[in-house]
Design a protein around this nucleic acid. Structure first.
Lengths: 339, 339
DNA sequence: CTGTTAGCGCTTTCAG
DNA sequence: CTGAAAGCGCTAACAG
């Protein structure tokens, strides 16, 4: 920068001003400086700039290691939402094993201005502690309930599950099973409560044996669904708590010679890229991941700008995408059950 | 840091030494400092550290915006390979529109110590220019041929295609089509040359009409495959240049009432997560993405360490994963053709 | 409008 | 082994 200043015959302050578009600079001076900058291939040293001015333009994106299709689109969405605010993402896998300090450490303090934490494995208290120290934070899709005070955004899990079950009920299903995620997770509990509520609203008492917990992986879904299908009175439809689980459920059905949706209707959750590709294409509850990312980043940006934010918890509406894995129940299903 | 020094009754220099494990520090002093650090929740300001010492611990990962399943695992692999070297990834979508300066700008110079550039849209010359300026760089999966001097790692595309075609030939296929990627891309040209070579080696003259270029998307694959299937003498097998294309090819076949692999065998490329999930599960050429990422990061790290690197271009072996989308050709296929 | 100057928080010789 | 001091490159008052 000093070189540029010398070459352009001005002071470093002027260079700084034109490069950052801050302060008024005479047009000819600006032009000249810009030209010299170009010639010398000068690029501002962001570390120095950050140290001085306090802005790094970097935001931590903390996430558990997971190669779910749900994940990549979320990360992609976050990265691009950030870019729109001229912020860049530093990916911080939340490896609890590595550092004692957990978040404080993974966040690369002193580099990162704030963070979007996805499915945090950190406790609510830890999160709040960091946040209260003045580190801007927003949780995207909290894994477990967060104490108030720390901003978060999720999908409207409950109403999504309600919509899915209502769809099944309208089709004529009465025995509807659920292949859920891990107990205790928000996603699981909220979807479960939607499932129960929708059933209850048409006078069906949710039967505990129709609920099979799993782990959000295909294989787990297969196992859990198989348990459901081996019941004396198996369900004619199941709501899987994500698309992986739905795929696993279809596999379990097929393995028993049941057709989907002929003998068993399956609804997934997420609307991942896979959903439309598998056979049959999955009817599923769509999570508005792009919107969620955009909103989360918006919340973070407002904190970065110093404004405190009003709504501490935001849920974004889901929508049901009807494809080929759901249909009215058939007699054949019952025949098989009777056998 | 000053606070810590004061609280611990030592100088900042000592703090720096214990925190960075540089220089000798008496054990008791070290212990004491560490304790104070913990108590005060001190975390080093990396911007300052970088400005002073020159290391940010940040590496740029430059990639085109793309939500291919191939992509996320590559990114994930890079991120974690980096973590193993205590480096963090700054995601830099290569948005050519935004900045004039292209790479120089997206790389966040002054923050990032080097970069892994995936499928660069930048010209070979630009890349070399940056590299020669002393900015450590490694290209992962070059999109177009790179001039020598800039290190890169790819999958062994040619031999992968050869293996795929040989598999088809062994099954008894003779009329083998190709649904390729965009002409000019390394991935396309190399796989194409493998396809041709394998055919030639058993005396088959590759027929131009059996080669249909597409764009690596499902829909494009469907269209291209449909063109192949509408030929007077359609292929009994096709090698799709990625899994998306393979899925599209299956769809095109199904739309014409052809079964896969009964009437048409299909081989994909990538072995993406989708490959095993679709019906039928795809026989496909596996790209060792994890290995590729690890090797690329290794190459980068060696440059970062100041060592220059020997092999400027590395190809990692692919492997054929045989699943359910390939089978010997049937007469029925010919019957349909005759009709 | 533009130049001067004082640090930002840390690393690193160089003395003690 | 430890402390003092000189910047790293830049920004942000504050003067002119």
């Amino acid at each position: 920068m000093r070189d540029v200043a010398r070459a352009a015959g001005v002071s470093v302050a002027t260079i700084s001003r034109v490069v950052n578009r801050s302060g008024e600079v005479a047009a000819p001076t600006r032009e000249h400086v810009l030209e010299v900058v170009r010639e010398l291939g000068y690029a501002t040293n962001r570390s120095a700039s950050a140290l001085s001015g306090g802005r790094t333009g970097l935001v931590g994106v903390v996430l558990p290691r997971m190669r779910a299709p749900y994940f990549d689109v979320l990360v992609d969405a976050i990265v691009h939402a950030l870019i729109e605010h001229d912020l860049r993402a530093v990916i911080c896998p939340s490896l609890r094993e590595h550092g004692e300090s957990g978040l404080l450490d993974t966040l690369v303090p002193g580099v990162t201005e704030g963070a979007v934490v996805v499915l945090p494995s950190e406790s609510s208290a830890e999160l709040r502690a960091v946040h209260e120290r003045g580190y801007p934070l927003v949780v995207l899709d909290p894994k477990t309930p967060l104490e108030p005070g720390i901003p978060s955004v999720s999908a409207a899990n409950t109403s999504g599950a309600v919509a899915a079950v209502e769809h099944l009920i309208e089709l004529g299903h009465r025995r509807i099973g659920a292949v859920t995620g891990p107990p205790g997770w928000c996603a699981t509990e909220e979807r479960l409560s939607g499932y129960r509520a929708a059933l209850a609203s048409v006078g069906i008492v949710p039967e505990p044996s129709l609920i099979a917990p799993a782990d959000f992986e295909v294989a787990g879904g297969r196992t859990a669904a198989d348990r459901l299908l081996s019941l004396r009175e198996p369900p004619t439809a199941v709501l899987a708590f994500n698309d992986n689980l739905a795929v696993g459920t279809c596999q379990a059905a097929r393995a028993r010679g049941l057709s989907v949706p002929g003998d068993l209707s399956v609804v997934g959750f997420d609307d991942s890229a896979q959903a439309a590709l598998v056979t049959p294409p999955l009817t599923t509850v769509r999570q508005p991941l792009d919107e969620m990312a955009r909103v989360a980043v918006g919340l973070l940006v407002r904190q970065l700008a110093g404004g405190s934010i009003e709504p501490l918890r935001i849920d974004l509406a889901t929508s049901l995408v009807v494809r080929g894995s759901t249909a009215p129940p058939t007699l054949r299903g019952h025949a098989v059950q009777a056998a």
